[in-house]
Structures are given as C-alpha cells and as structure tokens.
C-alpha cells in the first residue's frame, strides 16, 4: 500500500479571469519509509504539489490519497486534525516560534495539537533533542542559534508527534552547502531511526543526489513518470 498516491492530479490557480495551471495531471506513488525528492526549475510546481500532499491545499482535478484518505474530502478543521496527526512540516525559513525555546518549540505540537501527558511529553522531547543533536541547546531561543541548528529543531518538531510523513519544501535553501548537506543527512538518519517518510523539494543538484527516489517536475508535469533512483528499501 502506498503512503501517497496521485492519479492524474492537477491544480489550477485562478487569478481574476485567468486560469494558471500549475500541476497538469501527474501520477506518482510514494511508499512508506522512503526518502523522496521533487526537483525542477522555479515555477515548475514543486511547492504546489507539496502543499497538496500536506493537506494545505485542495486539488483541482484527479485524485490524491494520503494514508488512504482522499484529501479532497477534508474540510478546514478535518484537514488541520489530519495534519496534526500524520504530517510533519519543515519550512525553508525554519519558522520556529520566536518566543519559545528549542525545547518548547519541539514540545509545541504535543501540547497545542495533540494532548500528551507531561511525563510522556518530556521523554519524547528529550529523545528528539538527542536525536537531532540539540540536547545541549535545549534552552536557547531561535534567535540564539544558527540556521542549521534551527532547522535541526524544526526537523525534531516535525517528528515529535510520530508523524508518518514529513514534508520539507526547500529545507536547505537558506543554508550554506555544508550545513544543507548535514540537514539532509540528518533527515535520512531520522528516516532510518523512526521509519518516517521524508518528501522534500530542492533546486540544489548536490542535495537531490541524496534522495533515494527523485521526481523531476517540468512545467507542472512529471515527464518520465516513475521517478529516478533506487526503489526504497522495502
């Protein structure tokens, strides 16, 4: 069973009277515990596609199933709940909550999205701080740590409530090369450790080489269908 399955998926934005087709009928499948990358030039539709997979946006046509749920059927509230339970996000600009410490940022979904008991919560947060190598920076606020460290905290936040799928739209675009590489490494290590599927997008050729499965988007289409790369370990 695929974790994500898209069939003839399309998305058209409407600006005034003009239709802007951003995704023009794509088919793909993503298996559990895979490490997937979408690449393509600017404007090719990477963000649009990731937003739909992340239940942030509705498709205009075709079907998109995430964890066997047809995401077109979810309303605002249901989509929010679905994201909270199943999907983690890592953003290009880190998007940590500035008034909370690293520890509290990771803890946030366990309090505000799910309601975990305090002791279980503490164990989980410490485990993730450890896993992303930020245990010694737990009490620092986002403005007191580097970009790479922020993104580590963000990865931990995305994983903390045991998401089955983590989406990262250009997670390395604001990082220097070495740091970017280390974040991708961290994500892959997390995939190995937690069995979580990671889907990210990038421009960076060196970064995309790290993916096990790569889909190339070109003007809203995936020309060669299946995607390149070794199939994920099953």
């Amino acid at each position: 069973m695929s974790l994500v399955r898209a069939e003839n998926l399309s998305k058209t934005y409407r600006i005034g009277d003009i239709d802007v087709p951003a995704i023009k009928g794509v088919d793909f499948a993503i298996e559990p515990a895979s490490f997937v990358c979408f690449v393509g030039p600017s404007g090719s539709g990477k963000s649009t596609l990731l937003n739909m997979i992340g239940c942030l946006d509705h498709p205009s046509g075709g079907s998109l199933k995430v964890l066997d749920t047809d995401i077109a059927t979810l309303d605002r509230r249901a989509a929010a709940r679905f994201r909270g339970e199943n999907i983690g996000f890592v953003f290009q600009d880190f998007n940590l909550i500035p008034v909370l410490t690293a520890y509290e940022n990771i803890e946030y979904p366990l309090i505000m999205v799910q309601e975990w008991p305090a002791e279980k919560r503490r164990k989980q947060v410490l485990r993730l701080l450890e896993a992303v190598g930020m245990a010694d920076q737990a009490d620092k606020r986002p403005d007191q740590i580097s970009g790479g460290q922020k993104q580590r905290v963000a990865v931990a936040r995305a994983l903390v409530s045991n998401a089955k799928l983590v989406l990262a739209d250009e997670p390395t675009a604001n990082l220097d090369h070495d740091t970017a590489y280390r974040i991708i490494e961290l994500m892959r290590k997390m995939r190995d450790e937690f069995g979580t599927t990671f889907v990210f997008s990038t421009h960076d050729a060196k970064i995309m080489g790290e993916a096990e499965l790569t889909f190339v988007l070109e003007d809203g289409r995936i020309p060669d269908g299946a995607g390149k790369g070794e199939s994920p370990h099953v």
Binding site: G54, R77, A80, R81, R83, E85, I87, F89
Partner: peptide
C-alpha cells in the same frame, strides 16, 4: 506555521 502543523482554529 502553527496552523500548518495542525493547531486547530
């Protein structure tokens, strides 16, 4: 951000 990660309205 908090809305994307699932915080309810």
């Amino acid at each position: 951000t908090i809305s994307a990660i699932g915080t309810s309205p």
